[in-house]
Design a protein around this nucleic acid. Structure first.
Length: 437
DNA sequence: TCTGGGGTCCTAGGACCC
DNA sequence: TCTGGGGTCCTAGGACCC
């Protein structure tokens, strides 16, 4: 399978993959030392486990587990809401540490990165394993969290390495040892190969990563598409995925979705959810100075079927006021009365930089400029006082948290709840505004 | 088996044009 | 009007990932 290296120490490429151990939970333990050694879980706001510390995993807690179940198997678990802003700070500092070792760092996700170490042994007077050790040590000392590392000839192999031993593992996979790591690995565990492809490969008697890697190229080319051909090369130690250094990857799309329990058939309530989705998506788009050319509206029914309506916009925009008509249109097409829906969603797609938006002859320039000023003020207010300080009137019904079975359709009741919500806001000194644009 | 809220890329097929 | 070849753009949908 692998081309045998001419010398034992030959590394055509040395790619490192680093994966923080139980990242969210570890960050919490690093900030709150009294939590060290305890079963810590994040995800309180969602009702399911986002991350579990190794102490919690040892007690049978798994990712995605429902919290009531967690309380049963592990009654002393400390359950916390996820605090993304804090975790992002840890993330930034972890990447910063990695850049001390190599300029070629790809920030793959909040808790994972690839680093190209090719040719750096001399600089650091040590083997790739020793460099990995130093990285691990530095992060632990400076951030108080542990990481696992894999080093190999390609990204796919490095990822297999970092997963091989966790937590606090370091796994080197040189060319001559690749087969040892692939032999017992189910092919579905390989990065980029999911359940469907595993099923497909099973028909040809392929169940392990090694069996896949050893298949002849003619077979791979005949039966599989480009992404899988690339993975096949990577498994054979031929690096085809570059380490992408550009720190700012532009968004292709921005989406916001919301699931509500119990499912609802209340048109007003559902539209309010989707309207709020739209506002959130627009806030994010404006933060990155992007404008959408397409809007996708979707509703998910109770039986998980989903109906998506895609609309082309006359003008690229990230202003809810301009998107409200298309949104209503999409909603009317997708929504069926007397049907229970469990979630709503909005996607802003075909994003382009806001500055490249050209006015056409038909645009009402004065109106657009006025809108730009209004939203710029809205964004400033929201930054100072919190998200949704200023809200579209149409999103207001989304603020109702409680939905009583018997009273779901009772508008008067809902309005009471709404005002209660606003009073709370006033009590804590937040402005109550309802700007009509 | 569906656990929720983000995302990306690839391919096939239709519309349209020369 | 038919026949055939060839190219581009767009969209829907699939498959995966964290």
């Amino acid at each position: 399978m692998t081309t045998q290296p001419l010398t034992i120490h030959s590394w055509p490429r040395a790619i490192l993959h680093i994966d923080a151990d139980a990242f969210f939970a570890s960050c919490e333990q690093a900030i709150h030392p009294e939590l060290k050694g305890k079963p810590v879980i994040t995800g309180k706001e969602r009702g399911i486990v986002s991350a579990a510390s190794y102490e919690a995993k040892g007690r049978g807690v798994e990712r995605g587990m429902r919290l009531f179940e967690v309380r049963r198997v592990c009654p002393d678990a400390v359950i916390l809401p996820s605090d993304y802003e804090t975790y992002s700070l840890f993330s930034v500092r972890m990447f910063e540490i990695l850049r001390r070792f190599s300029p070629d760092v790809e920030e793959y996700s909040i808790d994972e990165a690839f680093v190209d170490l090719t040719g750096l042994r001399r600089t650091f007077h040590g083997s790739y394993g020793e460099i990995a050790g130093k990285i691990q040590e530095t992060i632990e000392k400076e951030l108080g969290i542990t990481v696992s590392i894999g080093v190999s000839l390609s990204k796919v192999l490095a990822k297999i390495g970092s997963k091989h031993k966790k937590p606090r593992g370091i796994t080197l996979i040189p060319g001559r040892e690749i087969h040892n790591y692939l032999e017992k690995l189910p092919v579905g565990k390989v990065w980029g190969i999911g359940a469907n492809t595993s099923e497909f490969l099973k028909k040809f008697g392929i169940t392990t990563a090694l069996e896949f890697a050893m298949k002849e190229e003619t077979f791979i080319k005949r039966h599989l598409s480009k992404p899988y051909q690339e993975i096949w090369h990577e498994l054979n130690g031929r690096s085809v995925y570059p380490v992408v250094t550009e720190s700012k990857r532009e968004y292709q799309s921005i989406s916001k979705t919301k699931t509500f329990t119990p499912p609802s058939d209340d048109e007003e309530f559902i539209f309010a959810q989707i309207s709020k989705n739209l506002e959130n998506a627009c806030i994010k788009a404006r933060r990155y100075d992007l404008a959408a050319t397409r809007l996708i509206v979707f509703l998910k029914q109770q039986d998980f079927r989903d109906i998506g309506i895609e609309l082309k916009l006359n003008r690229p925009t990230a202003y809810p006021a301009e998107l409200m008509e298309p949104l209503k249109k999409g909603f009317r097409e997708a929504y069926k009365p007397n049907t229970l829906y469990r979630s709503t969603g909005v996607v802003l797609a075909g994003l382009i930089p806001e500055k490249s938006v050209q006015h056409t002859l038909f645009d009402d320039v004065a109106r657009i400029e006025k809108m730009a000023r209004v939203y710029s003020a809205v964004d400033t207010l929201s930054e100072r006082f919190g998200k949704h300080t200023v809200q579209h009137g149409s999103s207001l019904f989304a603020n109702i948290q409680v939905q009583h079975e018997g009273e779901r359709g009772d508008v008067a009741f809902r309005k009471t709840e709404l005002f209660r919500g606003e009073n709370r806001r006033q009590r804590v000194g937040l402005p109550v505004l309802n700007v009509k644009v």
